[in-house]
Computed example of a mutant assay.
Amino acid sequence: MTTAYDKPLPAIDEYSKGYWNFARQHRLSVQVCRQCGHRHFPASPVCPSCLSDAQAWEAVSGRGTLVSWVTFHRAYWDAFRGELPYHVCLVQLDDGPIVVGNFGNGIPQDVKMGMPMKVQFEDVTPEVSLARFVPA
């Protein structure tokens, strides 16, 4: 990290704390239900499949497939104005749900749906590391 991070930071709460602990270790994780084994993201107090409140965080491979992406030409937060346009992607994890993220190092030149992706992390504060996706 070379400059101060001026973009919105996550509100880490009791449900998302496990995710951010793994991310700080540069490991992608998803919530898993201890009752039925369903993997889901984002964090939830109960399993969306069986409604059990027995939830835990589990590291996943961080590999997946690009499902879609969007290019934003408008800054919905002032801190993003200097990065316009910026890109948000949807990645279907090989071992979990679809997650939303940003491309690492900008949008890939040969970007296409179905592209294999992998996660990398950017340390933006001493407490927060953000997942970014790059071609695998």
Rank of each mutant, 00 (worst) to 15 (best):
L28W: 04
A43L: 04
S44V: 03
R81D: 03
L93S: 01
Q92H: 08
L84C: 02
F22C: 14
V91Q: 01
L51F: 15
S68A: 15
L84P: 00
S68D: 14
F103I: 10
V100P: 01
G62S: 06
C33R: 04
Q25L: 12
R39T: 09
A43N: 08
I98D: 11
D78Y: 01
C33N: 03
H40L: 08
G82K: 10
S52F: 07
R34F: 02
N102M: 14
D53M: 11
D94P: 00
P42I: 07
A79D: 00
F41H: 15
G64D: 06
Q35N: 13
F22V: 05
A59T: 07
N105A: 15
G106E: 10
Q92K: 15
P42R: 05
V60D: 00
L66K: 04
V70C: 10
V100Y: 11
R27N: 06
R39K: 14
L66V: 08
Y76K: 04
V88G: 02
P48Q: 08
D95V: 09
I98R: 15
S61E: 05
G96T: 02
E58K: 07
W77D: 13
V88N: 04
C50D: 09
G82H: 04
N102Q: 13
A59L: 05
V100E: 09
R34N: 13
A43K: 02
R34L: 13
I98S: 13
D53Y: 02
V91K: 00
R63N: 12
R63C: 10
C50M: 06
E83M: 08
Y86S: 02
V46C: 14
A56D: 15
A59F: 03
C47P: 01
V91L: 06
G82V: 03
N102S: 14
D53F: 06
A43H: 14
W69Y: 13
S44N: 12
V67Y: 13
Q31G: 02
R74A: 11
H40N: 07
I107D: 03
C89S: 04
V30C: 10
R34S: 10
P85E: 13
R27K: 15
H26N: 12
G82Q: 09
G106I: 11
A59V: 09
P85C: 10
F72W: 10
V32S: 11
P42N: 06
F103K: 04
D94L: 08
A54D: 14
S29F: 01
S49H: 11
R63S: 12
A59K: 05
V30I: 08
A43Q: 10
V32Q: 12
W77M: 09
R24H: 12
E83L: 05
